[in-house]
Amino acid sequence: MLFRHFSAKAIKVKTLPYSETQARHIPSVLLMIIDAIYRLLLSDYYDASQHRQSDEITIKEFAEEIIKLTERIRRLAISLCPKMIPSKDSLTSQRQREILGWEPRVRERKGLKITYDYFKRGALKSGKAVH
């Protein structure tokens, strides 16, 4: 929800507000996840299987990607506690790759563009986009 909210907000504002937290996220594009769920459903694997990107991302990094995409938003309104800046980790789920033959095909940047374009089309149609 956070990432959807962020992408949608980028259509309507010129300053993107965010608060950094200790949390690290691994946002995935919905379209990919549906494919992974379908594979799991038809597979013989019955234990829990994670479905996600392999790279963790912070809220700040996500916001910066949105700024690069929009070309209109020029700055972040930051509420950041320096001690809470998280480190970055990476993990590839072995199960999703080995058992289901599935791994993310859409990386964050491309996924963001797909999402941003989707919201932008909707906002332009409804006249809510800020130019």
């Binding site: 956070l2 990432f3 959807r4 992408s7 996220h25 691994i26 946002p27 995935s28 594009v29 919905l30 379209l31 996840i33 549906i34 992974a36 769920i37 799991l40 459903l41 597979s43 694997y45 019955y46 234990d47 829990a48 299987s49 994670q50 479905h51 996600r52 990107q53 996924g111 797909i114 999402t115 989707y118």
Partner: peptide
């Protein structure tokens, strides 16, 4: 039974 553990997800379906 199957369990899909989903992390943060965004975007159009």
């Amino acid at each position: 039974t199957r369990i899909v553990r989903i992390f943060n997800t965004y975007g159009r379906a």
